[in-house]
Design a protein around this nucleic acid. Structure first.
Lengths: 277, 277
DNA sequence: CGTAATGTTGACACTAATCAACAAGAGTGG
DNA sequence: CCACTCTTGTTGATTAGTGTCAACATTACG
């Protein structure tokens, strides 16, 4: 894992002097300096993530300034660090392609995968309040992200109530789904947790126009396990059980859902006890 | 459980015609009609929750309009329904005294305690995005809440950027702590989960000027269990173990922490495996 | 091609869920 | 005020499900 940007003390060095880079400048995997696209309008309309990402819900042509303040950040390689835990919050990031994970190291040195980010998703929502990023964000594969400097975004929100409203809704939804999804996870077996996770991934790919039956997940078994509160061994064994039941085939990071209806049914299987309050 | 306000079709009948009630009007436990304090300024300064609740962070005298749009809702009795799951989102509520739980019933008829609300906390943050309340909110004991009609609150935010900013920060923090706290819970034993919960409760009381060592939790063992993703039996047994270790004494809903440092250490005990990514 | 990282499989221990029986309170009506 | 009932909480026996440790297989990578 190579530190790319340390938005802490190194912010000025690494990224916030973007105008010296030309948009679309190529970057080799050796080049460990972050490149921005400068302040020129990022073409959100041509972005594959657009219809699904937060900005996409607000047609960009209604708020051209949004494209103005959005900067395209050059490609991240697998293992590159986008954000270091604890560094001061400056920007949100929109995933354009690829995927990333957020890992938080606790006081007792636990390593927790606290979020996974797929194309279209917003990184940094949980950093606004504290003014610091609560975890490191690491690229799981070759990925591109757009940077949304928060000060400017916020200032734009002042002038565009609709943008503000949508952003608030997005944040609220994120909170709601996190509350619900986590409470569910707490009461589910590994089999159901994993099924739920896979269905969610599948759904994400489906919405983005990719096959919901075949996809590649760049994260390791360990990351999946950690994210779901399981161990790698359990994830591995559960996947074997799926294969035995001809629910799902896997080969490395390739996932092939063989029986979607059954997987979905499994994912919806209620927890253990009804627990009448 | 008696339905008090069904903010759905009954909204107009039950609450949103507040001006007919005088502030502070008494309400017997038989009187099942919600009483508002009307549009007169609620005295946030005299409110015990004030320094800790969201509005408290923004001195009320800086934003007198906030008191203007805040309505005090009359006392809820134990078991009273403040919000019905799925009803349209209209208002946020600030807990003034007492405590409430949010329960979500899933498609598969699971009963999940998705949130607990103590004095000073904001109810409804997870409802903004969907426009509906994601769960029913039920009073766990005699409680009072202030209502913050969202349209007016939002409109006020337009004029007061600082209010907006603080609200956003609050929401973001809520998301961050939910993400972290839940990931932690997933990897902890019942003993550590419960310890963590009790320490959090204790902390809450301490901040509000009450004893952090002795307090009453109005929720049942079942609710605690559900909230932590455990069963009532496990909670009960774990409490017994605490008592044997002279960590904590309980009598019904009364909790008496005997050895805070040890309980805190227990709560911070790392999960199981380090899970190196 | 060799080394390290990642994933799989097996044996075993242990936690917490389940089922069931019982105890203790809270609420109700006589 | 007491008997009755209903809810809530406690305790015990049992078992399913996962974590843990360890060995081995596979893949990725230089």
């Amino acid at each position: 894992m190579t530190a790319l940007a340390l938005p802490g003390s190194h912010t000025q060095d690494n990224g916030v002097t973007p105008n010296e880079f030309r948009e679309g400048e190529a970057m080799t995997s050796r080049n460990k300096v972050l490149h921005f696209a400068g302040r020129r309008a990022v073409d959100c309309l041509s972005c594959r993530s657009s219809p699904f990402c937060f900005t996409g819900r607000l047609p960009v042509d209604e708020v051209p300034e949004l494209g103005d303040i959005m900067r395209r950040r050059a490609t991240l390689d697998k293992g590159d660090l986008l954000i270091a835990q604890g560094s001061p919050f400056t920007s949100l990031f929109v995933v354009r392609s690829g995927s990333l994970k957020q890992v938080t190291t606790t006081a007792s040195d636990e390593y927790l995968v606290t979020a996974l980010f797929l194309p279209g998703e917003l990184i940094g929502l949980d950093a606004i309040g504290e003014g610091r990023y609560p975890g490191s964000v690491v690229s799981l594969e070759t990925a591109t992200v757009c940077e949304l400097p928060f000060t400017e975004f916020s200032e734009l929100g002042t002038r565009v109530p609709e943008l503000r409203r949508r952003f608030l809704c997005h944040l609220s939804q994120e909170l709601g789904s996190e509350r619900l999804w986590m409470r569910l996870l707490l009461r589910r077996t590994s089999e159901v947790r994993l099924a739920h996770f896979l269905v969610a991934m599948s759904e994400h790919f489906r919405r983005r126009g990719y096959s919901p039956h075949r996809f590649r997940l760049a994260m390791s078994r360990g990351d999946i396990a950690n994210y779901l509160g399981l161990t790698m061994e359990t994830v591995s064994r559960t996947l074997v059980r799926y294969r035995e039941q001809e629910l799902l085939a896997t080969r490395g990071q390739e996932f092939h859902i063989l029986d979607m209806p059954r997987l979905e049914r499994l994912a919806e299987t209620s927890g253990r006890r009804s627990s009448v309050g």
